[in-house]
Amino acid sequence: MRLLNVTAFFFAITSALLLYGLNYDTRRLEDEVQAKEHAAELARNDIAVLKAERGNLARPDRIDALARHLGLMPPRPEQYQTGREVSELNDRQENADGRR
């Protein structure tokens, strides 16, 4: 009877200690998960801000002004060439270079 009591007591103490440890482990893991989630949330917000900033920097009126400042302008119809014209241009260039 006494042995049973001692064993039971021993088991009770051991399981209490184990539970205590497990409890702390769980809390630590929970904290870690929360920290990770928080970091992910921050990263998501940073991405949103960066996306908005990129959108703001790439807005067409700004690019337009910058491009014109560099001396660029919308393409004129005569600047387009058909595929054949381009390949002919290429051939002529190669002939001139003496590659043929």
Binding site: N45, A48, V49, K51, A52, R54, G55, A58
Partner: peptide, 16 residues
């Protein structure tokens, strides 16, 4: 949700 143009360029988004 965000709003983007036909080529995916951003027109509206949520910020904190």
């Amino acid at each position: 949700p965000d709003i983007v143009d036909r080529n995916g360029r951003l027109l509206a988004t949520d910020l904190q």
